[in-house]
Write a protein that binds this DNA or RNA. Structure first.
Length: 698
DNA sequence: ACATAGCGCGCG
DNA sequence: AAAGCGCGCGCTATGT
């Protein structure tokens, strides 16, 4: 390890001109608030030996009188290390590798180091070489590839006066050895991957798309997306009340059921009995009196009289309590107590244990077929779920994760090695599933705001995936719709019904209800049928999304109509099926590989699923390639205006820009998104706007 | 007390 | 018997 400046300078000197791997050890996972404790570096010297050194900035030394205690100690000043390493990282002709580089970049940038060489993220490399693995962690990968058994961090000994998770808490020698192993295996992976990527024809997508995109992602993760916390709190209040109202209605119905069981002399299952003190702890209003033995009686839960159950003297007293969030209890209520019979005309969702689902789609189907006879509690349940989802998945986590020191920014992770199609995924929190549709979408997206003196630029591709399908299939009608900027849903609806586009478009413009229905069907067809949805599922889709019921025969006719509407599209899909059967994989337009070994499965349904995945990845993955290239271009071109990417939602890009440059930046973003299309024989279209928040910029 | 599977639901 | 694809996450039920 390296613990003084002189050694540091010697190391830097000996690294010049050589490929190297790097890895930061930190006090936490967030670059904006946590510290870099040290830097591990590996390279190969003149003797072809791999050299690994841990450069220590900050660590612990054992206490003089008690080696179970560690004393914080400063080693090399970061500024000295950075000064020595700046020329190393500034080299452009050497390869610089790291495992999960976006993470390291955040910390390096904060210290003032920016790797300028040929970047190589070994995690992404491993993903491109096989996107079907379960894990791309360094330890698992090193074990699989080299048979290396790397130390498990959690098992390292640590000083007792530190939290176990802290790297600082691990005594210096084993800590350094651990860090050095990280870059050693990263370097070995880098050496091994390069020729493999080349052999598989993946070098271009790696160097021109994945690695430049890694820098964009690192920046997005550092910057984050600002929130209007006052409005978050407001919305939390509003929906807290809405949630409580509907929850109470469903709860009361459930409690009626339990009371009914009692009257019938039936047992109340244990899962319905809750300990009184647990309810109190959860904030449920409970009134009770206690007798001489301190046993509760005359108990009211939420103002409702309930019996008390106490099996033995040693067990705590329990009361019946209906849990509105429990699927099993809801199924008891709906299919037992209310005796709702499941519609047979359409297929409803069943669970693994054979029970009927209580999901939104099933409830909507029930409502459709029962009409006025449907219990009112269904609406309360649907409304409660909506409000509860909003609070539990979005508002409360946002409040917890917002950074009060930077405009309540949310810093999500964007991962390049999760989605097998090559899309990004987002987590902690997921910013790619923030509500966008309907009234709720408006309210929630309005919470995401531009920082002071900034504006948001929101641009999205219109029908990106279908344009890829048009490109590949060269279907005349599909291409015409996109080159002439026609309404695609009208086009599909017209062709399904055997009408011309012009005829249906005019009737839709004149508010002809029958024509509007045809367009609606066309829209559903575009979303559902492009990737091979079957009749039964499509029937449900039409009913749940549009409230229209068709017999299964009519649904099949619509599917046939869709396939006949775009005959070249249908033919091209068959070609893709053959391609994946022949090669076992397909490639996207950006050169990414999607291996589908299930295509050779003896299970015909599994093989068919692989066929559909092959078609889907050409569109979805190709779209992801294009959006990625656009983001790279955007990052380079808006930086002079101090603008930057803040989020990507698959076909949508959000950029934050100083207000004074917003118009310029909008034009750059739109241009960039269009210009990356030197790959497609189908034009692209981008819609973009400027606004103070995520909704109003849309 | 803790981990995992399954469901349900938000997005493109 | 079975025919959209791709995600992340909160919650309950279940098992250890």
């Amino acid at each position: 390890m390296i613990t003084d400046v002189k050694e540091m300078r010697d190391l830097a000197a000996s690294m010049m001109g050589r490929d190297f791997a790097f890895d930061v050890e930190t006090s936490g996972l967030r670059a904006h608030q946590d510290r870099t404790l040290g830097l591990s570096l590996s390279y190969v010297d003149d003797n072809d030996d791999i050299v690994s050194e841990y450069v220590v900035f900050e660590h612990t030394l054992p206490s003089a009188d008690d080696d179970t205690f560690g004393i914080p100690h400063d080693f090399i000043a970061r500024s000295d290390a950075v000064a020595a390493l700046t020329p190393v990282f500034a080299q452009t002709e050497v390869a610089m590798s790291a495992h999960n580089m976006a993470f390291d970049l955040g910390f390096l940038w904060k210290m003032g180091l920016d790797p300028k060489g040929e970047l190589h993220d070994t995690m992404i490399g491993e993903f491109l070489l096989n996107e079907n693995r379960e894990s791309y962690g360094l330890k698992q990968t090193a074990e699989r590839v080299f048979g290396a058994r790397m130390a498990v961090y959690k098992n390292l000994h640590h000083y007792l006066n530190f939290a176990k998770e802290e790297f600082m808490a691990v005594p210096l020698e084993p800590a350094a050895a651990y860090a050095e192993d990280d870059t050693k295996y990263t370097y070995l992976l880098f050496e091994r991957q390069l020729p493999m990527l080349d052999e598989e024809g993946l070098l271009t997508v790696f160097e021109r798309l994945s690695m430049p995109l890694c820098r964009v992602i690192a920046e997005m993760q550092v910057k984050g997306f600002a929130l209007d916390m006052a409005k978050v709190a407001e919305l939390r209040e509003e929906y807290g009340a809405i949630s409580a109202t509907h929850e109470h209605a469903v709860w009361s119905a459930g409690m009626d059921m339990i009371a009914d069981w009692q009257e019938q002399g039936e047992d109340i299952p244990d899962t319905y009995l809750k300990m009184i003190d647990h309810l109190v702890k959860d904030g449920v209003p409970v009134q009770a009196r206690v007798d001489d033995n301190n046993a509760p009686y005359d108990v009211h839960v939420r103002g409702r009289a309930v019996p008390v159950f106490q099996k033995t003297k040693r067990t705590k007293p329990r009361v019946p309590y209906f849990n509105v969030g429990s699927r099993t209890q809801l199924a008891d209520l709906l299919y037992g107590y209310y005796g709702i019979t499941v519609p047979t005309k359409v297929k409803v969702k069943t669970n693994k244990d054979g029970t009927v689902g209580v999901d939104k789609d099933t409830l909507k189907i029930i409502k459709h077929f029962m009409g006025d006879k449907a219990p009112k509690v269904l609406d309360d349940l649907l409304e409660w779920r909506k409000a509860d989802k909003l609070i539990g998945t979005y508002l409360d986590p946002f409040s917890r994760m917002a950074d009060p020191d930077d405009n309540y920014a949310i810093r999500a992770n964007f991962n390049q090695t999760i989605a097998r199609t090559g899309r990004l995924s987002s987590s902690s929190p997921n910013l790619q599933n923030v509500p966008s549709r309907g009234e709720l979408g408006k309210k929630v997206r309005s919470l995401f705001v531009a920082r002071p003196d900034h504006a948001l630029i929101v641009c999205d591709y219109s029908q990106l995936e279908l344009r890829l399908l048009a490109h590949y299939s060269q279907d005349e009608a599909l291409l015409r719709a996109f080159t002439e900027n026609l309404d695609l849903h009208t086009m599909t609806g017209a062709r399904q019904a055997g009408l011309t586009y012009e005829e249906l478009a005019e009737r839709v413009a004149n508010e002809d209800p029958e024509a509007k229905l045809l367009r609606t069907i066309g829209k559903s067809a575009n979303f559902g049928l492009s990737y091979g949805m079957g009749a039964k599922k499509y029937q449900v889709y039409l009913l749940v999304n549009n409230g229209i019921y068709f017999d299964i025969e009519d649904v099949q006719k619509q599917i046939d109509g869709f396939n006949e509407a775009y005959p070249r599209l249908y033919a091209w899909k068959q070609e893709v099926f053959e391609e994946v059967r022949r090669k076992g994989y397909v490639k996207t337009i950006g050169g990414r590989k999607r291996r589908l070994p299930e295509i050779y499965s003896g299970d015909i349904w599994e093989a068919r699923a692989a066929e559909r995945q092959a078609v889907n990845v050409k569109a979805q993955g190709g779209g992801a390639d294009i959006v990625g290239l656009a983001m790279i271009r955007i990052q380079e071109r808006v930086r002079p205006y101090n603008a930057y990417n803040v989020v990507q939602v698959h076909d949508e890009i959000v950029v934050e820009s100083p207000t004074e440059h917003a118009e310029t930046v909008l034009q750059i973003v739109k241009d960039s998104m269009i210009e990356v299309n030197n790959l497609l024989k189908c034009p692209l279209a981008v819609e973009g706007t400027i606004g103070p928040n995520w909704y109003e910029a849309k």
